[in-house]
Amino acid sequence: MADSTDGDMEIYDLKVTVDRIEGRSVCGMATGDSFELVNSAHLRLPEGKHFCVYALAAVLPFLAAKQRDLAAGDWLAQDSHFACPDPEERLVMKVERTCRRTMNSADLT
């Protein structure tokens, strides 16, 4: 087991933002609404805001990969936009890396 003072992995904190809505917003979200994923697995929403669970479900499978360094040719290293599955809404989210942090994997698993 690694010493808890020494980080053995580096990951990124992420911010997921509604980039655009090309249809009609049926979930009550608007362009600019967002959440942050910090400290590996902590989801933070701005005070008084919400994020549609279906939009979250669409982007969630990609977040663990976006937190890590990826090969230069990996499509996920180049793409940062993800779409909600609701065809009426056509909500598009952008995933951005906000900071890189060193963590101890023994504290997380």
Results as ranks from 00 to 15, higher is better:
60 L>V: 07
24 R>H: 11
51 F>H: 07
1 M>T: 07
47 E>M: 13
19 D>I: 14
70 L>C: 13
70 L>G: 11
60 L>Y: 00
88 E>Y: 14
70 L>Y: 11
104 N>E: 02
42 H>M: 12
86 D>G: 03
27 C>E: 05
37 L>N: 04
48 G>H: 14
4 S>M: 03
91 L>D: 04
98 T>S: 04
103 M>H: 12
46 P>I: 09
38 V>G: 01
11 I>W: 05
84 C>P: 01
58 A>I: 00
84 C>E: 01
102 T>M: 14
96 E>D: 00
20 R>K: 15
106 A>D: 00
69 D>M: 15
17 T>F: 02
102 T>K: 15
40 S>T: 13
79 D>C: 10
75 W>H: 15
4 S>W: 12
109 T>A: 08
56 L>P: 01
9 M>T: 02
43 L>A: 03
11 I>P: 02
87 P>C: 01
72 A>I: 14
97 R>S: 09
5 T>Q: 05
101 R>H: 02
55 A>D: 03
96 E>R: 03
24 R>W: 10
96 E>H: 02
43 L>S: 02
22 E>D: 15
56 L>F: 09
3 D>Q: 14
36 E>P: 06
90 R>M: 11
39 N>A: 00
63 L>N: 02
92 V>I: 15
6 D>N: 10
76 L>R: 12
35 F>C: 01
21 I>N: 06
42 H>C: 10
8 D>E: 09
27 C>N: 07
50 H>C: 13
68 R>D: 13
8 D>N: 12
37 L>P: 02
44 R>C: 10
80 S>L: 11
103 M>C: 08
100 R>F: 14
